[in-house]
Simulated scan of single mutants.
Amino acid sequence: MAQSINTKVELTTTGVSYLSIGGKVGKFLLGDKGIEFYSDKNVEDYIQIPWANILSIGANVTGRKNTISRHFEIFTDRGKFLFASKDSGKILKIAREHIGNDKVVKLPTLLQTIGQSLKNIFKSKKTE
């Protein structure tokens, strides 16, 4: 049986983990000790990330109303985790309370990533 790392739960919501191919649907538990994700199909298939291990957490923010996308990434000392949830804004607000405002970042959009890649390609050709 999976044992929770949290003693108090602040938010429970549904979402998807993209750790494996195709993604797994499950539940998020955010509490006083960290973020947890439990798969709906197999509760023993879980991810537990303590707040102390999170280097940063980020999501795409788009539009004039600063809409937060469903997808967010958690960067830890062990790697990167990609998740999606309809309540990603709430998840980021709770994470901000635990890890600090400076570790909650705005990730670049797809167009910004492509633009930066093109800049780097042309920049490297000029220096040759």
Rank of each mutant, 00 (worst) to 15 (best):
M1R: 14
A2F: 14
Q3Y: 08
Q3M: 04
Q3L: 15
S4L: 09
S4I: 07
I5G: 07
N6H: 07
N6C: 06
N6R: 15
T7I: 08
T7G: 12
V9F: 01
L11E: 06
T13E: 09
T14K: 08
T14Y: 11
G15C: 15
V16C: 14
V16D: 07
S17Y: 10
S17K: 13
S17W: 05
S17F: 09
S17V: 12
L19N: 05
S20Y: 06
G23R: 13
G23Y: 08
V25H: 04
V25C: 02
G26D: 13
F28R: 10
F28V: 11
L29V: 11
L30W: 14
G31E: 03
D32E: 14
G34S: 01
I35W: 02
I35R: 02
E36A: 03
F37P: 12
Y38A: 01
S39G: 02
D40F: 10
D40E: 12
K41W: 13
V43C: 11
V43D: 02
D45R: 10
Y46A: 11
Y46W: 01
Q48G: 06
P50Y: 03
N53D: 15
N53V: 15
N53Q: 12
I54H: 15
I54P: 11
I54Y: 15
I54F: 05
I54K: 01
S56Y: 14
G58F: 09
G58Y: 06
G58L: 06
N60T: 03
T62F: 06
T62R: 05
G63P: 04
K65W: 09
K65D: 11
T67R: 11
I68W: 00
S69R: 00
R70K: 15
R70G: 09
H71L: 07
I74H: 09
F75L: 03
F75N: 13
D77R: 03
D77I: 04
G79T: 03
G79M: 13
K80V: 12
K80W: 06
F83E: 12
A84N: 08
A84R: 06
D87K: 04
D87I: 06
S88A: 14
S88E: 02
I91G: 01
I91K: 02
I91W: 09
L92M: 09
K93H: 08
K93F: 09
A95G: 03
A95E: 07
A95N: 05
R96A: 06
R96T: 15
R96I: 12
E97Q: 05
G100D: 05
D102Q: 14
K103N: 08
V104K: 00
V104T: 00
V104S: 00
V105I: 02
K106H: 01
K106R: 14
T109W: 00
T109M: 00
T109G: 01
L111C: 06
T113M: 02
T113L: 09
G115D: 08
G115Y: 08
Q116G: 10
Q116R: 03
Q116Y: 08
S117C: 13
S117V: 05
L118W: 10
K119E: 07
K119I: 11
I121V: 15
F122I: 12
F122Y: 03
K123P: 07
K123I: 07
K123G: 10
K125C: 10
K126E: 05
K126D: 11
K126N: 05
